[in-house]
């Protein structure tokens, strides 16, 4: 175990000492802050207009129970950043290894490739979880500013905390998938392009509206199915099924990447 911890610690210091990783992570967080700021006024206005019987109008013409609607808004705000941008960060982290023979240096330090892959996955999970928690904290801070005069306790409900847990799991799992694809392809570019394609398929709902059975098997679509309310969005599967799909994607793709890394020469 101590060998694994040492290797995972080394992978984490690699991530932390890479300038490009910090640049991209910073850009993503900045974008999140910017979008949150732009949305804050709309949300505050909507909260001020909550009717005495507790209905809110977030989208023009739609009156919904305020508490639920605000929590949904909070979740979809984080969800957007988590599924769209975290896989990009993961692909950049994974791709660092395939620049200018860096992989050989890593294999010299940790020659057992299975161990190396496990260490990389652990370090990625830790780092991405950190980023996801930061994203959720920012979302919560904005939402708190919007609702503090109406119901400051809204953000601490049990359901809300469960949603945060699911978001965190989703963030880690989609990042692992993107990391594994990049490692399989040995290219940051291919990792990013495939991640963006998977994301575009889920977000445009192309498959969900034509062949929902296929859509339900895609990782980002599974993320939607896991987190959004069936009443508000067209979903292609149940939350339980989605959870299985996501975990299977993360496990299988990481295993495949580890297997290939073991078999190929470290070039």
């Amino acid at each position: 175990m101590s060998v694994l911890f040492a290797a995972a610690g080394a992978e984490l210091s690699k991530i932390r000492s890479s300038r490009i990783v910090w640049l991209i992570t910073g850009a993503v967080i900045a974008l999140h802050l910017l979008i949150g700021l732009a949305n804050l006024r709309n949300t505050s206005t909507a909260v001020e207009g909550i009717t005495p019987d507790g209905l809110i109008e977030i989208f023009a013409g739609e009156h919904q129970p305020a508490g639920e609607a605000l929590i949904d808004l909070l979740v979809s705000f984080s969800l957007q950043i988590v599924v769209m941008f975290l896989p990009i960060i993961a692909a950049v982290i994974a791709g660092q290894e395939f620049r200018e023979g860096h992989l050989a240096q890593s294999v010299l330090a940790v020659p057992r490739r299975g161990l190396l892959m496990a260490a990389k996955a652990i370090a990625l999970v830790v780092f991405m979880a950190g980023v996801a928690i930061l994203v959720e904290l920012i979302s919560n801070a904005y939402m708190f500013l919007a609702v503090k005069d109406w119901d400051p306790g809204l953000l601490l409900g049990t359901d809300t905390l469960a949603d945060h847990g699911k978001l965190l799991a989703l963030a880690v799992l989609v990042s692992l998938v993107s990391f594994a694809i990049t490692t399989l392809a040995r290219s940051t570019l291919i990792g990013i392009v495939v991640s963006v394609l998977l994301m575009a398929l889920a977000m445009t709902q192309v498959l969900a509206r034509t062949v929902p059975a296929v859509d339900a098997l895609l990782p980002v679509s599974a993320g939607r199915n896991l987190l959004l309310e069936p009443a508000d969005a067209d979903l292609s599967s149940s939350a339980g099924y989605a959870a299985i799909v996501l975990v299977a994607w993360a496990l299988l793709s990481t295993l495949a990447a580890g297997l290939l890394l073991s078999r190929r020469d470290a070039r």
Partner: peptide, 8 residues
């Protein structure tokens, strides 16, 4: 086009 245009 996919990431920035859709979010902003």
């Amino acid at each position: 086009p996919i990431l920035i245009s859709t979010t902003l």
